[in-house]
């Protein structure tokens, strides 16, 4: 199990002033692709599919609100999570992505305090188990949006993610603590 890398503060600061508007369409498309390619997620989510989940990358200047409703799923970028959101899941971006692609264990991240969970724990477990079983591959699921260019897109996206991990792994983040 790899240690949890944190994005350099330079990236966080660079992203800070950028508007969130341009993110919304790509986020929506990626979520629809994930849902279309992994429809069994909803069987495991059950009643929790109708809840809202706040996803808070601790090394990004914005957060996400996920509403995995079977008919109208939505993923929206927000400056800060709305008050009263039923679930808050916070941690480094690459830890959150690692929970999705199966490279990290959620309980281990919780034990190491890299992952913070607040709110409806039952919904959190259902989401975690549904995603872990589905075998979501964000790179492949995103690349699938590009039709015949999917193989090329997948290579480019995988390379970009690898580069991001390299940058994060090499970064010295003040106060950062790996969990192994």
């Amino acid at each position: 199990m790899p240690p949890v890398p944190t994005l350099p503060r330079l990236i966080t600061r660079t992203l800070q002033p950028l508007p969130l508007g341009p993110l919304q369409l790509p986020l929506s498309l990626v979520l629809r692709s994930v849902v279309a390619r992994h429809p069994h997620i909803f069987e495991r989510l059950g009643e929790h599919a109708h809840k809202r989940f706040g996803l808070e990358p601790s090394d990004l200047p914005f957060s996400f609100v996920l509403a995995p409703h079977p008919e109208t799923p939505s993923l929206v970028a927000v400056r800060s999570l709305p008050a009263g959101i039923p679930v808050r899941i916070a941690g480094p971006l690459l830890a959150l992505l690692g929970l999705i692609d199966g490279s990290y264990d959620g309980d281990a991240l919780f034990f190491s305090r890299d992952l913070v969970v607040e709110g409806d724990v039952e919904a959190v477990l259902a989401l975690r188990n549904a995603i872990d079983d589905a075998g979501v591959d964000l790179v492949a699921d995103t690349a699938a949006l590009f039709g015949p260019l999917a193989p090329l897109s997948e290579r480019l996206l995988a390379g970009a993610l690898l580069r991001l991990k390299d940058v994060a792994g090499a970064a010295k983040h003040e106060g950062a603590r790996t969990w192994n």
């Binding site: 199990m1 690692g98 199966g102 990290y104 264990d105 959620g106 309980d107 477990l125 872990d132």
Partner: peptide, 10 residues
């Protein structure tokens, strides 16, 4: 059994 694929694999 409550743990993830990452735990099982490791």
């Amino acid at each position: 059994r409550q743990r993830s694929r990452a735990y099982i694999e490791g």
